[in-house]
């Protein structure tokens, strides 16, 4: 990110230079993962994923300085992001019910996800059908590679709860996407 002190003209002249540099580094380190995580949490909507990541970074910017350790800052950041994603899903639910049939959105200029679109849609639906806790645990741990304790800190749930959510989510997804599950023989060969 190029958020330098000079680029902000007089607007934030009194803002600590180190704070902005820290924020630049923070955005650079977490931008891609944040957008990817938001994308998976909101069911493959690239525009919404970027909006959610933007909102989370904005809030993180306002909270800079409260956190001495990067690890705590990033946990807090991903917690904001996860909550923003949930907020987005709730608003989408409201919009769909209030507006009914909405006209189709204009085509998204962002690059489409790779792979088989029909398969992606099926996986997306199966993940979206999971209850919130299971969906968040599965996406954070199995798809995004966070540890159980990190996922627990991000979602504000106990590690044991995350583990049981993971267990249940995996069972439901394997049932919903049975044809995706390879047989033991195929895995071993």
């Amino acid at each position: 990110m190029t958020l330098g002190v000079g680029s902000l003209d007089g607007a934030v002249r009194d803002v600590d230079v180190a704070r902005i540099r820290d924020f630049d580094a923070f955005v650079a380190a977490h931008r891609d993962r944040a957008v990817g995580l938001a994308w998976r949490l909101v069911g493959g909507d690239a525009a919404a994923a970027e909006d959610i990541a933007q909102e989370a970074f904005l809030r993180a910017y306002r909270g800079l300085g409260q956190f001495r350790e990067e690890a705590k800052m990033s946990t807090w950041f991903y917690r904001i992001l996860t909550n923003e994603a949930q907020r987005h899903l709730r608003w989408r639910w409201v919009r769909q019910r209030v507006a009914g049939e909405m006209p189709a959105d204009p085509p998204d200029p962002r690059p489409a996800a790779t792979g088989d679109p029909k398969l992606r849609e099926r996986v997306e639906r199966a993940v979206a059908d999971l209850p919130r806790g299971q969906r968040e645990a599965f996406v954070l741990v199995h798809l995004e590679g966070f540890t159980v304790s990190e996922a627990a800190a991000i979602t504000g749930r106990a590690a044991g709860t995350i583990k049981s959510h993971l267990h249940r989510a995996l069972g439901k997804l394997r049932k919903a996407l049975a044809d995706l599950a390879p047989s033991a023989e195929a895995t071993q060969s």
Partner: peptide
Amino acid sequence: SVADSYAAPPM
């Protein structure tokens, strides 16, 4: 296979 088929487009 879920992770591969459900991944965001690269930045």
